[in-house]
Amino acid sequence: MNQRWRRYLPLYVLIAITVLPIAAAYIAYYIVPPSGRTNYGTLIEPQRPVPALPLTSVDGAEFDLRQLRGSWVFVMVDGGDCDSRCNEKLLMMRQQRTMTGKERDQIERVWLIFDNAPLPIVLMREYEGTHFVRTALPPLRDFLALPDTAGASLQDHIWVIDPRGNLMLRWPKSAEASGVKRDVAKLLKIAAGWIRIDPR
């Protein structure tokens, strides 16, 4: 028995090295209680799977938010006229993605536009790579988690959908870039141990 154990010891070590990071990431993400976490944003608990939403790209094609499964997705909501607060959110999403460096391809950005106001071409060029998607407000209110405070608005926040297709985090109104950056770094680190999900 001892000889057999010694013979397979390298295999056991290899399995442990492979499995432990994945197990640790799973435990850190799903099992550690919220009080043990130090997130800047607010965790959505329970997490909400992305439903079928009535979405249309600005070019008129149907858009399914679930097609981005396999990536981290930053989501914001605003009208097409895009005031200064809207621009700040677009800039935040772009900068946070850029600051991840070589990991930026793991992040998608979605702007859910709740009206038919035309989008300025300059704005679309400035935030190229963002998915510009039109929808209605009622389905978003049912899906996107708002804080339980008076006057809370969908336009106030940026949300995060994880690679498994679950709404899992909400950043506060007028979020600080440093806090968002810490959260993004933690999320990417945790996900590094996950088995890659086929978005199909």
Rank of each mutant, 00 (worst) to 15 (best):
A145Y: 09
A25H: 01
R6T: 14
G165V: 10
I31D: 04
V75N: 07
G79D: 04
I158A: 06
Q106Y: 04
L9V: 11
G179W: 07
F63T: 07
V160W: 08
I190K: 05
C86A: 05
Q96L: 15
D83V: 04
Y29V: 09
P199K: 03
P10Y: 06
N2T: 06
R94H: 12
G79R: 13
L188T: 00
K186G: 02
V73A: 09
G193W: 08
G41M: 08
I161V: 14
L167W: 04
W111S: 07
W72N: 03
P54F: 09
L119T: 00
E126H: 08
L9G: 03
L68R: 00
R125Y: 01
N39P: 01
V122P: 00
P139G: 01
A52Q: 12
V110D: 02
N39R: 14
G36K: 12
M76T: 14
R104Y: 01
W111A: 12
A117M: 14
P120R: 09
L119G: 05
Y30E: 10
P118N: 12
L91H: 14
P139W: 05
N116M: 05
T38E: 13
L167V: 02
I17S: 02
L14H: 04
V73M: 05
P118K: 13
H131M: 06
Y29N: 07
R37D: 03
A185P: 04
R200S: 12
T98L: 10
E45H: 00
S153I: 01
V73F: 09
I113V: 12
A28P: 00
P199A: 02
R6G: 12
M99Q: 11
V110R: 03
A185W: 01
L188N: 03
L188D: 02
L11A: 10
K189D: 12
K173Y: 15
G60N: 11
S71W: 08
S71Y: 13
Y40M: 02
R196V: 12
S57Q: 14
V73R: 07
R66D: 07
G193F: 08
R182N: 08
K173C: 10
I190A: 10
I107S: 04
N116F: 04
V32E: 14
Y127H: 15
V58K: 05
E128S: 13
D142T: 13
L167T: 04
G101T: 00
W171V: 03
Y8C: 05
R94W: 07
T130R: 03
T100G: 02
T42K: 10
T38N: 13
V122M: 07
